[in-house]
Design a protein around this nucleic acid. Structure first.
Lengths: 395, 395
DNA sequence: GGGGATAAGTTTATGACATCTACAAATACT
DNA sequence: AGTATTTGTAGATGTCATAAACTTATCCCC
């Protein structure tokens, strides 16, 4: 942002972002004048930029809205549906997921391919995923919707340092050291890579309201392990290698059981899927729905489930205090368990959080708004965020 | 950064920041051409901006440097010493501190007023501090150096939400709900307010090298309690209320002793000043220097000190993993204990950190570079950062 | 039903800004 | 001494957001 073209790029992005922002329920699509007020840009500038976006087909002008007040009625602007799309892919322990969205956020295509990927052959799985992706890309192309980029969510540690694009380690898949440049080449489109929880957190952030407390949260994604994404004031914390948010290996008890990571008493050994099932008195392979049913029906199971809540509260209290955040979003298995998990966890955290004790803040614990393949959705949004940041690159 | 004047403001700040950046040892002050290369701005742009800064007296042109290579010799640019200053104030449990610095980073004035502030009368202490400050401001004014702003570091939770400027709670001082607007008015200059550890972390960040791993760290400040500042990729994490970094209340053991905060097993109850002294076998009021001597001399004390290291390692491993950071900076009492603390803590963290295990990263634990009143220094830098961000406001 | 009042959006002109091109200055190398 | 090389400056240029004036389209009220 040092010279005029970059200033233009930035402002063009600002205007498009404003047009693509999810409207508050009941609110009409924004018009030029409103965008000018919200961005601080002059209305002339907004008009110019909007003209450019209209000419490029990225946005459309809607029919004038019956004016509520006096004055000339507004011409609402909205993203052009189907003008371009982004593809989000997700490899999870139990399924392959795909979501394609356009700038309106509408889901243009969706795939959910249930299959246990534990110990699977990476080459086979990636080939299967590439087939799914190519099929969707071809369908969208026939409808005139180009796919401008692909995001891939993986349940493990990834790296994009230097010119690398690789999965380093996904213990729950049994995958290691997997170069993803060939996969990117096969798709023929730029590939964005990140952890499953980080992408899912992005998808949630997209739906968060304007309140700062709502735009800061810890996203928890429990499947085989516990993943996490940290969002602080609209920004996803990445860390040095992009591995921030690994809540699963916060220490709960120094004398606890040994974790797969080598340490003792990790949160994962108390509140991971298998641990929860065992604690409640079900076989370790029990699904979260079964756990929910047991806890809801059986008082003894409910009592044992308290230990899980306590462990989560212990781990999360530290996280919330450390980052001065007051919201926890439950994803993955935790979303399923939310009916029996959210409220007890909230009240425990309310007691243990410094911001609540000293600042009167309210702790919120809620299930994720995105229910299916959230990481795929977030991966697609990560691609579209690039479009929003520099629309002219996609004219 | 939406229009031309703001672009100018930004670029002017970029150039001044580059000129005020602490040079690598042995490196000469940067010339216009080098600034152009580093900022990406055109050399004519840099010349124009430098002229403005020269005219305003914020920078000076040094005598030409004997050229090492062929070509015209460079005219190094440097911040103008004494052109303006910022004042940093620190109220700590055991002393009042003051540091005044100019854009070169030179300390123009320094005060250290040892006095136990526990249970002191806030009004008296603030009056004393204001006297110190006014004396220094007057002295600097006589030398022609205006003080453009004041930063105040407090050992507790502060708030600047809305138009407030207040200390909410400083348990170790016994202070609560203290409005600082009157203090600001008495100084007659804008007051920046923050936690002691956050400001101290800023001072350390200022001295960090260019390596990203060096510019991300957890700053620990142990006095009566344990404060902390989180710096992730050059950015100090604030959190919703600005209270992020409270490492002292990370849970170490769910069955541990009850902490003053109400929870059980907080890090503070294992690695706070009193806890350390007691663990080592000294009276709870023992100073860290005495602890260091005991641990260095007495093998039994050293053995017991291992428990402190273990507690810190447990708490910090979670922090480092959560934020994907590999550096810990020891401040306050911990800086004193560094000779017996840094290495054992480092090796424990090296074993427990995911980035080290999976990514081959090296964990660093080192004492703070700033020894005396680090928070006062950081508070002063926080003020000067505003000058660097918008120099024209101080012409 | 006609004349403000009001707000949205456009047209034309303006001024600020970074950059580009060309050039002058000052040194090292041969 | 001459040439290459790098720094820094001067004047011209094109881009960009903005300002002022104007048009368009509604509501409100008499």
């Amino acid at each position: 942002m040092a010279n005029s073209p970059e200033l233009r790029e930035r402002n063009l992005g600002l205007v498009l972002t404003e047009i693509c922002r999810p409207a508050a329920p009941g609110a009409p699509a924004p018009a030029r004048s409103q965008i000018a007020r919200r961005t601080g840009l002059h209305k002339t500038t907004v008009s110019q930029l909007a003209d450019e976006l209209l000419a490029a087909g990225l946005i459309v002008e809607l029919p004038p809205l019956a004016a509520a007040r006096s004055g000339r009625p507004t011409l609402p602007l909205a993203p052009n549906p189907g003008r371009l799309a982004a593809l989000g892919l997700e490899i999870n322990v139990e399924y392959l997921g795909l979501k394609a969205i356009d700038l309106t956020g509408a889901v243009l295509a969706e795939r959910h391919d249930a299959a246990d990927q534990r110990g699977s052959d990476p080459a086979r799985t990636l080939a299967r995923l590439a087939d799914l992706a190519r099929d969707v890309v071809a369908r969208l192309a026939r409808r005139g919707t180009p796919v401008v980029g692909v995001g891939l969510a993986l349940p493990g540690l990834t790296t994009t340092a230097g010119d690398r694009l690789a999965l380093l380690n996904a213990p729950n898949l049994g995958w290691r050291d997997l170069d993803l440049r060939p996969f990117e080449a096969r798709l023929g489109r730029p590939l964005k890579l990140d952890n499953e929880a980080n992408f899912a957190a992005r998808a949630e952030l997209r739906l968060a309201g304007p309140d700062p407390a709502e735009r800061s949260f810890v996203y928890l994604s429990a499947e085989a392990g516990i993943g996490g994404g940290l969002v602080s004031d609209d920004v996803l914390t990445a860390g040095l290698h992009g591995w921030a948010g690994e809540v699963g290996h916060v220490m709960i008890d120094p004398d606890g059981p040994v974790c797969a990571c080598g340490a003792r008493g990790c949160l994962e050994t108390y509140a991971g899927r298998r641990a929860i099932a065992r604690t409640v008195g079900l076989p370790a392979s029990a699904r979260p729905e079964a756990v929910l049913a047991a806890v809801a029906a059986d008082p003894a199971a409910a009592k044992r489930f308290d230990d899980v809540v306590a462990a989560l509260a212990t781990g999360l209290a530290g996280v919330l205090n450390l980052l001065d955040i007051t919201q926890v979003v439950l994803g993955g298995d935790y979303a399923v368990l939310a009916p029996v998990l959210a409220e007890p966890l909230r009240s425990a955290l309310q007691r243990r959080t410094l911001a609540a004790r000293w600042g009167g803040a309210e702790v919120t614990v809620r299930p994720a708004r995105v229910a299916t393949t959230p990481a795929a959705l977030g991966a697609a949004w990560a691609v579209l965020d690039q479009v929003l940041a520099n629309p002219a690159a996609y004219f």
